[in-house]
Amino acid sequence: MQLLIALVTGLVFGLGLIVSGMTDPSKVIGFLDVTGKWDPSLAFVMGGAILVGLIAFRFAATRKQAILGGPIRLTTTRHIDRRLVLGALAFGAGWGLAGYCPGPALASLATGGSKPLIFTIAMLAGTAIFEIQDRFCSRPIKKAG
C-alpha cells in the first residue's frame, strides 16, 4: 500500500509540474528574469502548493503517526550553516543556467529527448560527488528533501 501511495503521489506530483509550466525551462528562466520581461506565473505554483501544504503539515503535527502506520518523518535540523548557504546558492545558480530543478528534470525524461537526460545524468553525478565526499567527511547530516 505504501508503494502504491508513493507511485500515485509521484505521478500526481509530476502531472502538477507539467500543468504548472515548471517542466518548460524557458518559462522557468522567464520567472527568474526579474530584471527583464518578467513572467511571475511560477510564483503561483509555489503559492498553490504551499496553500495545501500549510494545512497538511499543520494536520500532520497533530498526529502521532502516519495513516498507514510508522512515524511522520519531519526534518529536525534547525541551524542555518555554511553548507546550507553554499548549497542553496550553487543550486540556484544551476537552476538559473538551465531552467531545470530536480523534479521537472525527472518529469521530462520520458518525452523530452536528450537535453533533460544530459541534465539528469549530470545531476546524479553531482549527487554522487556529494555522497563520496560526505562519506570521507564524517559530520552527520540530516536529509530533508
Partner: peptide, 28 residues
C-alpha cells in the same frame, strides 16, 4: 546542461533540499 546539472546535484544535497523540499515542504 552538464554544468547546471552538476551544480543542482551537488547544491541540493549540501543544501539539504531543492524547490520541493525547502520551497514547498519547508515553507509549509
Amino acid at each position: 546542461l552538464i554544468v547546471a546539472g552538476l551544480l543542482v546535484g551537488v547544491g541540493t544535497r549540501y543544501g539539504s533540499g531543492c524547490t520541493s523540499g525547502h520551497g514547498v515542504c519547508g515553507l509549509s
